[in-house]
Amino acid sequence: MTDESPITDDRDPAQVVTAMVDHFLRLAATWTAWDGRPLQSGDRIYTPHKAVRRVSDHLLDHLSELEARLAGHEAIPDHWHASMITTPADLAPFTEHDLDEARSRITRLAQLWVDRLNALTPEQLDRSPGQGWTFRQLAFHMSGSSYYADAVGDLRPAATVR
């Protein structure tokens, strides 16, 4: 993940967000097989719960920014520790119930993004009010949240992966 301006293209920004969520949920469906050992990615460690937390937080944080800017005020800055920390809750077993909750939460957050992005005009997407990336760039930045899912990966036993 980077602070550089996201590169955009002619894809529908709402579809960019939903494609990331679809990718995330495909991998998350395998995480009930997690053996409890944190997975190293660069200088950080990840677990299924941490990936869910990070994607949820990222969707919420930037949606909050988008809505604040549309309302004409500055977004409340986040004070989350992001992926720098791993909480005891991140280390808990990842069960079918956890998967169901993650699907529900992340799918609903993605729907908020889709509804909001689809309500914006092309001009609003590309000439967004306030400081920061355009709303189109924010949507494309969200696609980078697939990093968290990829850090955990596909946890199906090797024999079942095709």
Rank of each mutant, 00 (worst) to 15 (best):
A75D: 07
L109R: 02
E101N: 05
T95R: 01
A149K: 02
D98K: 03
A82S: 11
R136K: 14
S145V: 06
Q40H: 06
D35E: 12
V152M: 02
V52I: 14
W133T: 13
D35N: 15
L155Q: 02
Q40D: 04
M84H: 09
F24P: 00
G153F: 07
E101T: 03
D22H: 15
P77I: 05
T18H: 02
Q15F: 09
T121F: 13
R108M: 00
D100S: 10
M84T: 07
T47I: 07
D57V: 09
L125T: 11
S5C: 01
D12H: 14
A82F: 12
P93S: 02
R69K: 09
G72M: 08
A92V: 04
A89K: 02
Y46I: 07
V55D: 09
W80D: 15
W133F: 11
R103A: 00
T121H: 12
H79W: 01
L138H: 13
R136A: 15
P129R: 07
R105L: 06
S128P: 06
R156L: 04
A19P: 08
R136V: 13
H62A: 04
Q124K: 12
R54N: 10
Q131E: 15
E74L: 15
R103W: 03
A29M: 09
G132L: 14
D126A: 06
W113Y: 08
D57I: 08
T86R: 09
H81D: 14
T8I: 09
S56Q: 13
V21F: 04
T32K: 06
L63Q: 13
D35G: 03
A71V: 09
Y46N: 01
K50P: 11
R108I: 01
Q111N: 00
A102S: 10
R162N: 01
S64I: 04
S128K: 03
W133Y: 08
W34V: 08
D126C: 02
P122I: 01
A33I: 04
H62M: 05
L70Q: 15
R54T: 05
A75R: 12
S143T: 06
S146C: 10
D35K: 06
P48E: 14
H81L: 14
M20T: 04
D78W: 08
A110G: 04
L25Y: 00
R105H: 03
A82G: 12
Q131H: 15
L63E: 11
D3A: 13
T86S: 10
A71L: 13
T32S: 01
L109S: 06
M84Q: 03
I106C: 01
W34E: 05
P48N: 13
A102M: 01
R37I: 09
I7H: 13
D22I: 12
T8Q: 00
M142K: 07
I106W: 07
R103V: 04
T18I: 03
D100T: 12
R37N: 15
V152R: 03
G42K: 05
G42Y: 09
T8G: 05
A139R: 05
L155Y: 02
W80V: 11
E123V: 10
G36K: 04
A33F: 13
Q15V: 10
F135V: 12
Q124V: 05
I76A: 05
I106M: 03
T18V: 04
A28E: 12
D154M: 00
D10T: 13
F94A: 00
A119S: 15
A28L: 13
H81W: 10
T134W: 03
A75Q: 07
E4M: 12
